[in-house]
Design a binder for these strands. Structure first.
Lengths: 136, 136
DNA sequence: TATTGTTATACTCTATAACTATA
DNA sequence: TATAGTTATAGAGTATAACAATA
């Protein structure tokens, strides 16, 4: 099979992202979390009293789509909301939320190490800066 | 905003893939093609008489999902099918399909060059080998 | 006027199971 | 028995528009 597609960075990016997302997703599912849930918990832990809108902007998720995401986390008692003023509300991790976030971080860090280990040494340290140049 | 997420290769991979896919998708849409359509046309051009199943395996798309994809391409007269035996059929580009494929390739190559140009020189040549180590 | 949170909805993409017919 | 092509369907993820209430 002649396949020129893996020579295209855009295609390889797509395939690599899909493959790694599937793997990490399966591991986080053992915690009942999706990747985006873990990302949200991590950001909430680092930014006390962040609002749903600000969180969505940082994660590039639209306001409307934050509603079911946060509702799931709230239903599981991983987060709480507190009014900041009449229209904004702070998002806070509960104790259970912090524990879950830390468990997710362990999985994620282990996964990142495995990812990097797959990459030949001479290329390894270049992946992150190259990727970040593409979207940040 | 404290955001440790971009330090995680898995997260940056996800964001970079999403951002670049949106850009390339918009450009290919001017041809009436999605990325996966272009990929399929490119593979068909390089592998005469490939079957739908083999194409799906190479692209990591399930047989069932190839049906509407190929139907769209066939409805637009970009591809044709010819029986290979009683159960398999060869996929072939029409003249219009080859033209469309070549137009897509131009867009894709221009896009890939722009992508690479965004990456600092010292990291640039490492992206593709690093990505391919993650999924191939 | 702009922003927050929300509801409702539509659309795309993908996954799964099942079926027929043929190798 | 395994494979090719297909149908039908369900689920996830995302996008869009609109609304009320507040800054």
């Amino acid at each position: 099979m002649r396949d020129p597609l893996p020579q295209l960075p855009g295609y390889s990016l797509r395939r690599a992202a899909h493959a790694t997302a599937a793997e990490l997703g399966a591991r986080l599912a053992t915690l009942g979390l999706r990747q985006v849930d873990a990302s949200a918990l991590i950001l909430m832990a680092q930014n006390a009293d962040i609002t749903a809108s600000a969180l969505g902007r940082q994660l590039d998720i639209q306001r409307a789509n934050m509603v079911p995401l946060l509702k799931r986390l709230e239903d599981e008692r991983l987060i709480e909301r507190q009014p900041l003023d009449g229209k904004s509300q702070a998002l806070l991790l509960t104790a259970a939320g912090r524990e879950r976030m830390e468990a997710a971080l362990e999985i994620i860090h282990a996964f990142e190490n495995e990812l990097l280990a797959r990459i030949p040494k001479e290329h390894r340290d270049h992946l992150l800066p190259a990727l970040n140049a593409l979207w940040r």
